[in-house]
């Protein structure tokens, strides 16, 4: 109970800080799913992936379990908005989102000095799209699904670069983000661990 080196207000606690951040990003993701749903598209499965913005923003802020909570909330929120939560389409969206977010997390943890959000976003989009194509092939359509693969992947390529540019900007400029990052500590869990050690 050493009180002299606890940097944050006691009554707030660490759990609630993290929960607040997850909740803000999840709510943001829900909102962006709605925006995405409103944008007219030539084919329903051509996605821009706006709802993945908060997922990428969360990469530096959370530990893996916390990050997975955010991803789960994003998948559920997207299913809710699109009305696909209890249909077979949900399998595609869940599979794609899960695979891509894990891939992005891995990439961020391994190479965050050598990669910006553009690269992370690109890998995320490509992973998500290929997982969805593979699921579509084995679950429903057979190999004829690959006829639509090139434009599908091209769309992912272009939109993910744009999203990456946006996240690069956002993480540079946002005050909310920089304060959140300060609390978390630049290298993921470290800052938080120090705080929780101080508390016990």
């Amino acid at each position: 109970m050493s009180s002299e080196n606890t940097p944050v207000k006691r009554e707030n606690g660490i759990g609630s800080e993290i929960i607040t951040k997850i909740a803000i990003l999840a709510a943001f993701s829900l909102f962006l799913s709605t925006v995405e749903y409103m944008i007219p598209k030539p084919l329903p499965f051509l996605r821009i992936g706006l709802a993945n913005l908060p997922i990428m923003v969360g990469l530096a802020l959370f530990s893996l379990p916390e990050y997975l909570i955010l991803v789960t909330l994003k998948i559920a929120g997207q299913g809710l908005i699109n009305g696909t939560l209890f249909s077979y389409i949900f399998i595609y969206s869940a599979g794609g989102s899960l695979a891509s977010s894990l891939m992005m997390y891995l990439l961020y943890k391994l190479f965050h000095n050598k990669i910006s959000y553009i690269g992370i976003s690109l890998v995320g989009a490509m992973t998500s799209n290929s997982v969805q194509l593979l699921l579509a092939q084995y679950l429903l359509f057979g190999s004829s699904i690959w006829i639509i693969a090139p434009p599908f992947l091209l769309m992912g390529l272009v939109s993910s670069i744009l999203l990456g540019i946006f996240v690069n900007h956002f993480t540079d400029r946002s005050r909310w983000y920089s304060s959140a990052l300060e609390f978390t500590g630049l290298y993921g869990k470290r800052g938080r661990d120090e705080i929780s050690h101080a508390e016990t």
């Binding site: 190479f111 000095n113 050598k114 990669i115 910006s116 553009i118 690269g119 690109l122 890998v123 490509m126 090139p150 992947l153 091209l154 390529l157 670069i161 990456g164 540019i165 690069n168 900007h169 540079d172």
Partner: peptide
């Protein structure tokens, strides 16, 4: 300009590989 500044080596590699693949 800002994007060019933030661009890191792996970004270019990934972008090249992904475009090539598509």
């Amino acid at each position: 300009l800002h994007t060019m500044q933030k661009l890191k080596p792996l970004d270019v590699v990934i972008a090249a590989v992904a475009s090539g693949l598509v």
